[in-house]
């Protein structure tokens, strides 16, 4: 099968941090959320995919092709949205567009103008005068105007207000209606992913803890609440625990074991992605 993105045993070593044998597969037509705390390795992974930094081991294939050997061809089909503004601040939106558009074989000016209108951006405005939200809109307009088949986004919603975040999610949802397109979306705002992601990959301290279908993940994990004294001899049944004076809260992915151990004496609730992320990190 030709995956939009296929990462095998990817490795990158820095002083004090190592990305360890990452494995990710993303099929066309799906959105993958890439979650993890700050410093977990999300941006490093994305930079490796984009060949902005060199890998120390493993393989990265985009559209079935090696990301270095077919770099130009691959990047022509990728829409990349950055976590920060990396455009020339002194230029206007139109000037910046004129620079970027010359590099893409399928650049669509009408599409770009349509996004600029939709996002209410003034083409004459200098990039340095734009707010963070407006810069992100501009970045999105660039990424979506050359018929990209894979959109890679590094923390696109961080620092943005909920209304604008919802707007971005709607756009992404519309893009994915074309079953040839895929989105790889890193964030630590997990509620965004609960709305639109099909798959979730969770990275912590350079290692992937899981990479699975979102629904399967949400079905597998539960939050268990009860009194602290019930924890005696049962602590190892939880992935992560939080104890207070009034009781405990823990994350489990073994619901049957919890039910048989505690009977009906504990409260079992569905876990959110945030719960899974927080407790998985705490429990380690």
């Amino acid at each position: 099968m030709n995956y939009s993105l296929e990462i095998k045993n990817l490795r990158k070593e820095f002083k004090g941090f190592t990305l360890k044998d990452l494995n990710i597969k993303l099929e066309p037509g799906f959105i993958m959320g890439f979650i993890g705390p700050n410093g977990a390795g999300k941006t490093t992974t994305i930079k490796l995919i984009m060949n902005l930094i060199k890998k120390d081991g493993g393989q990265i294939k985009v559209f079935g092709k090696d990301h270095v050997a077919a770099e130009k061809e691959i990047k022509d089909r990728i829409g990349f949205v950055y976590d920060e503004n990396y455009y020339y601040e002194d230029l206007s939106i139109r000037q910046m567009k004129n620079i970027v558009s010359k590099f893409y074989s399928k650049w669509d000016d009408n599409q770009f103008n349509s996004y600029i209108n939709e996002f209410d951006l003034n083409p004459k405005a200098k990039i340095k005068t734009l707010s963070k939200g407006m810069k992100m809109k501009f970045s999105l307009a660039i990424a979506l105007s050359h018929q990209a088949d894979l959109i890679i986004m590094d923390e696109p919603t961080s620092g943005l207000d909920p209304v604008f975040r919802r707007g971005i999610l709607d756009i992404l949802y519309n893009i994915i209606q074309d079953e040839n397109k895929s989105i790889f979306f890193s964030t630590h705002i997990t509620t965004d992913l609960e709305k639109i992601a099909d798959y979730i990959t969770f990275i912590n301290d350079g290692e992937i803890l899981f990479s699975e279908a979102k629904d399967k993940i949400l079905d597998s994990y539960r939050i268990v609440k009860g009194s602290t004294k019930m924890l005696e001899g049962n602590r190892d049944k939880f992935i992560g625990l939080r104890e207070t004076d009034v009781g405990f809260e823990g994350l489990t992915n073994n619901i049957n074991q919890i039910e048989s151990s505690f009977n009906n004496d504990v409260l079992i609730e569905k876990a959110s992605l945030e719960d899974i992320m927080v407790y998985s990190i705490r429990g380690e």
Binding site: M50, K75, Y87, Y88, D90
Partner: peptide
């Protein structure tokens, strides 16, 4: 100088252009 000032190397290198080119 512009690339230094605006830190645009990441952006330029995400465009369809090989570094050798």
């Amino acid at each position: 100088v512009f690339d230094m000032k605006s830190q645009t190397l990441s952006m330029m290198n995400s465009l369809p252009l090989r570094r050798k080119d």
